[in-house]
C-alpha cells in the first residue's frame, strides 16, 4: 500500500544521500586545495558550506515534522533517529572540509613540506571511510558499516605517527615549527573525519539491526 508517510521517509533519505555526496565532494576539494595550494578551490569549499548547512536545517525540519505528525515506531522510528544523528555527523564533516580549506593560504609557502608528509595518504584513507559509511546508509548495509569501524584504528595510528614525526621536525629546526604545527592540526582534522565516519557506521548498525554499539552499549535495548 503506497502511503504518504513512505514518501516523507523517502524524501528524508534522499536529502541525506544528497547531503552525503555534497560533503564527500567538500572533503575532496578541501584536501585537494591543501595539497595543490589552490586558494580559489578553498574559497569554493568555504562558500559551499552554506549548502551543507541548508541540508542540515532541512533534514532537522523534516524529521521534526515526521515525529510530530506520524509518531513513528519500530524501523521508522530508528530511521528518524539515525537520520537526525547522521545529519549531525555530515554537517560536522562539512565543517572539517571548511577547516582544511581555511588553512590553505597559510600553507602556500610550505607546499613542499606538506607534500613530504603522509597527509595525502591519510586523507585518502579518511575519505574512503566517509564514503563507505555513507554507502552503508544508502544501501542499508551493516556489513559495510562494520568494516568502517575496523578502519578507524589505521587512521588513529597514522595520526599518532604524524604527531611524533612533526615533533621531531620541530625539535630539529625552528623554521619548521610553523608548517609542522599546521600539519599536526590537519592530521587531527583528518582523524576527526574518520571518527565521524565511525559514528555514521554505528548509526547504520542501529538503524538496520536495532543494536546500539557505541560506547559498548550493546544489548541495553
Amino acid at each position: 500500500m503506497p502511503r504518504h508517510f513512505e514518501m516523507e521517509l523517502d524524501q528524508l533519505r534522499t536529502m541525506l544521500i544528497r547531503m552525503g555526496s555534497l560533503v564527500e565532494e567538500q572533503i575532496d576539494c578541501g584536501v585537494k586545495s591543501i595539497i595543490d595550494g589552490d586558494e580559489s578551490l578553498s574559497a569554493l569549499v568555504i562558500e559551499r558550506d552554506k549548502k551543507v548547512d541548508e541540508y542540515d536545517n532541512a533534514i532537522d525540519q523534516q524529521c521534526m515534522r515526521i515525529f510530530a505528525l506520524t509518531q513513528p515506531v519500530a524501523v521508522d522510528l530508528r530511521l528518524l533517529m539515525a537520520a537526525l544523528k547522521i545529519n549531525n555527523e555530515l554537517e560536522r564533516i562539512g565543517d572539517i572540509a571548511v577547516n582544511l580549506a581555511e588553512r590553505v593560504k597559510a600553507l602556500v609557502p610550505f607546499r613542499a613540506f606538506v607534500k613530504e608528509t603522509r597527509l595525502s595518504e591519510m586523507a585518502t584513507a579518511a575519505r574512503e571511510m566517509v564514503k563507505a559509511a555513507i554507502d552503508s546508509f544508502v544501501n542499508n548495509d551493516p556489513g559495510l558499516a562494520k568494516k568502517v569501524l575496523t578502519s578507524d584504528d589505521v587512521i588513529d595510528s597514522i595520526d599518532r605517527q604524524m604527531f611524533e614525526l612533526m615533533v621531531g621536525k620541530m625539535k630539529g629546526s625552528k623554521d619548521l615549527i610553523e608548517p609542522a604545527v599546521h600539519v599536526v592540526i590537519l592530521s587531527r582534522h583528518l582523524e576527526r573525519l574518520a571518527d565521524h565516519a565511525t559514528n555514521i557506521a554505528e548509526d547504520v548498525i542501529f538503524l538496520v539491526n536495532a543494536r546500539i554499539i557505541k560506547h559498548n552499549a550493546d544489548e541495553q535495548i
Binding site: 500500500m1 502511503r3 515506531v73 519500530a74 524501523v75 521508522d76 522510528l77 530508528r78 536495532a210 535495548i221
Partner: peptide, 21 residues
C-alpha cells in the same frame, strides 16, 4: 519498549508501522 522499537516478528512490525495488508 522492545515491541515499539524493535519487534521480533515481521507481522508485528508491519502492523505497528501501518504497513499491514
Amino acid at each position: 519498549r522492545k515491541i515499539f522499537t524493535n519487534p521480533e516478528k515481521k507481522q508485528t512490525e508491519e502492523y505497528i508501522t501501518g504497513r499491514f495488508g
